[in-house]
């Protein structure tokens, strides 16, 4: 019983992290129809800024700077690169973000070099809570709390604020939204900023000992990669699906690593995604594309 509770706790904690990443991914997709393969790199970039500024600014200051920096980088990518390639197909834009991902990842990995593994979870790194005979680690607990607040806030804003309205309008019909006076670039830029910020917040919980293991920030890009299956299996067009997808991926991973082994946990995530996709080719909550001849 306590093992099962442990699996649930780990899965939900990790799922919260994936949900943060996948939500940003879906918001970006909804506003620009671009699959952002550079999402892991945005997170890594934010994490690197936190790592670099921590000794001078302290954890909180560095964390704020890191989140802002990742948001700024995301806007930069959208404005400088993607906005210029409006005519390119969706797939080539996705490939463009793969190029961006390679650039950022290579440069930051080079900068980190063989330096001792950087960790970013200072305030909650060593917190541990007992719950129904199981232990929940600090980073996972705080990730869960942060995710509840942020994701809740996102859905409220998405449903009730003017910003949310413009966003929904644009993803529904771009031309009509533009004719109604919605400034397209503000919507897309804000979506990218939000995606970058959420990714950088997620990295604060990933680059910790319980989540990333001994490698810390250097393993973060690989871990953040699991946000892709999360977003895909939830359905790329659905923010709610991203949250569900994140939790499914987190739970699949934690139960596979508990009942089989750690290696299989990485594969299990993808197998779950594959099964979902074969049953529902647009993900659990994704919009099914209608083909008109």
């Amino acid at each position: 019983m306590s093992t099962f509770v442990q699996v649930l706790l780990n899965g939900t904690g990790r799922g919260a992290i994936y949900a943060l990443l996948a939500l940003g991914f879906v918001v970006i997709y909804k506003s620009t129809e671009v699959i952002n393969f550079a999402h892991g790199s945005l997170a890594l970039f934010g994490g690197y800024i936190v790592f670099a500024l921590k000794p001078t600014l302290g954890w909180l200051g560095a964390a704020v700077c890191g989140v802002l920096a990742a948001a700024a980088l995301a806007v930069l990518i959208e404005r400088v690169l993607l906005a210029r390639a409006k005519l390119a197909s969706q797939d080539s834009l996705a490939i463009l973000t793969i190029g961006v991902d390679i650039l950022i990842l290579t440069e930051i990995t080079r900068r980190l070099g063989t330096a001792s593994a950087p960790f970013l979870g200072d305030p909650y790194q060593d917190v541990r809570l007992r719950f129904l005979g199981a232990t929940i680690e600090g980073p996972e607990l705080f990730a869960l709390l942060t995710a509840i607040v942020l994701i809740g806030g996102f859905f409220v804003a998405f449903r009730f604020s003017t910003w949310g309205l413009t966003m929904r309008a644009q993803s529904e019909n771009k031309e009509a939204a533009a004719l109604m006076g919605i400034r397209s670039w503000r919507v897309t830029a804000s979506a990218w900023a939000l995606g970058g910020a959420l990714a950088a917040i997620a990295i604060l919980f990933i680059a910790t000992l319980p989540v990333a293991g001994g490698a810390g920030l250097t393993a973060a890009h690989t871990i953040a990669f699991a946000a892709f299956p999360a977003a895909i299996l939830g359905g790329l067009t659905s923010p709610g699906g991203a949250v569900v997808g994140g939790l499914v991926v987190g739970l699949a991973e934690s139960s596979a690593s508990q009942y089989i082994d750690n290696d299989f946990a990485k594969v299990a995530v993808y197998l779950v995604m594959l099964v979902v996709l074969v049953a529902r080719p647009s993900g659990l909550f994704g919009k099914v594309e209608q083909v008109r001849v």
């Binding site: 699959i35 969706q90 995604m273």
Partner: peptide, 24 residues
């Protein structure tokens, strides 16, 4: 069975799962 049902980016990420499967 997978490639026939999926298109575009869904297929790309689905095919990525083969790399993970092969590795394991």
């Amino acid at each position: 069975p997978v490639s026939g049902r999926l298109t575009g980016i869904y297929l790309g990420v689905a095919s990525l799962s083969l790399v993970f499967l092969g590795w394991w």
